[in-house]
Amino acid sequence: MEVGGVLNREKQTERLAGMVGRNKRLHPSAWLNLLYVPALVLFAVFILYPFFKGIQVSFTNWDGYSQTFSWIGLDNYRRMINDPNIGTVIENTLIYGVCSTVFQNIIGLAYALLLNQSVKGRGIVRTIVYLPVIVSPLIMGYIWYFFFQLQGGALNDVVQLFGNQPVNFLDDPKWNVWIITFVNTYQYVGIAMVIYMAGLQSISKEYYEAAELDGASGRQRFWHITLPLLMPAITVNIVLNLIGGLKLFDVIMALTKGGPGYASQSISTMMFKVYFASQDAGYAAALGNLMFVLISVFSLVALTYLRRREVA
């Protein structure tokens, strides 16, 4: 029996060695690199090619539809610099990007700090705060349009209850840009909250216990423990919010369509208007390159600055 058991074990060992050998022959490290190929192909087709094609189109007078076009050099970029509306459009874009980022992070962090504690019903509150994220931005814009609209809007109904005349919030340049910023903040604050909650739950409680024994107040614990250890989450949130806000499109189209005139236009909505209304694909491509530069500069500067402040 002992000899038979030894032989059986030897056969099993040989079988396992053979399987390992076959696996090595079937899956060498060089073959594993081929798994990158589908992703690289998709990236090249849907990202790199449109990017370089957009740069090429920006030097032409292509209308976006015809098969013929002419090279016009830097004329589209000169036109963009001299466009009397480009200053307003860039200012609006920066407001949507920077202010939405600030509001989303402040409110998201406040929610995370509150709901990270043992508060009754916190699961329901988390769901309510996160729920707008899963709604289409276009649908979210239309929902808030019915709240702010002049005739029959819920807000104007309240205004009229107090004997005042209805206010055209969406056509007033003093209001519409900030309403769009508010709606964008409201929709995506849930993402910031979730990222901050993940960051808070990764902080060891031992830090807080040691600080409490040393007599540190709640404010001191926040500034010297919570905030420094949350820097990775802050970095992720700020960069994502900046990118999303600077390319904001759907909510603007649903609420104001960029109007009146260029009062609430962003670069993305101006591109849409120039391409489809004016059939000027060359100028639209130049605007797209401007938006790419803005997003790249702001996101890279924010990423570089915030990564240096992260606790090693």
Rank of each mutant, 00 (worst) to 15 (best):
residue 184 N to W: 14
residue 183 V to I: 14
residue 176 N to Q: 10
residue 175 W to M: 07
residue 285 A to L: 03
residue 278 S to K: 14
residue 194 V to E: 09
residue 186 Y to F: 09
residue 233 A to F: 11
residue 290 L to K: 03
residue 192 A to L: 06
residue 182 F to G: 12
residue 216 A to I: 01
residue 186 Y to C: 04
residue 262 Y to F: 13
residue 224 H to E: 00
residue 213 L to H: 03
residue 221 R to I: 02
residue 210 A to V: 14
residue 282 G to C: 06
residue 282 G to T: 05
residue 274 V to Y: 11
residue 215 G to H: 03
residue 257 K to E: 13
residue 271 M to W: 12
residue 275 Y to H: 07
residue 215 G to D: 00
residue 234 I to K: 02
residue 238 I to Q: 03
residue 264 S to N: 08
residue 179 I to Q: 06
residue 173 P to T: 10
residue 261 G to R: 13
residue 256 T to Q: 06
residue 180 I to G: 00
residue 276 F to N: 07
residue 182 F to P: 09
residue 192 A to Q: 15
residue 182 F to A: 14
residue 218 G to L: 12
residue 273 K to H: 09
residue 281 A to R: 03
residue 217 S to Y: 10
residue 278 S to H: 13
residue 201 Q to I: 05
residue 259 G to A: 13
residue 187 Q to K: 14
residue 217 S to A: 06
residue 208 Y to L: 06
residue 282 G to M: 03
residue 286 A to R: 01
residue 265 Q to F: 03
residue 279 Q to A: 13
residue 240 L to K: 00
residue 191 I to L: 14
residue 241 N to A: 11
residue 215 G to Y: 01
residue 174 K to F: 13
residue 238 I to W: 05
residue 199 G to V: 12
residue 172 D to N: 15
residue 169 F to W: 10
residue 285 A to Q: 06
residue 257 K to H: 11
residue 194 V to F: 09
residue 277 A to Y: 10
residue 267 I to R: 11
residue 174 K to H: 15
residue 207 Y to V: 08
residue 206 E to R: 07
residue 206 E to Y: 04
residue 195 I to T: 14
residue 232 P to M: 09
residue 271 M to G: 08
residue 222 F to T: 01
residue 205 K to F: 06
residue 205 K to E: 13
residue 198 A to D: 09
residue 280 D to M: 04
residue 189 V to A: 02
residue 207 Y to C: 10
residue 171 D to W: 11
residue 193 M to F: 07
residue 257 K to L: 04
residue 221 R to W: 03
residue 275 Y to I: 05
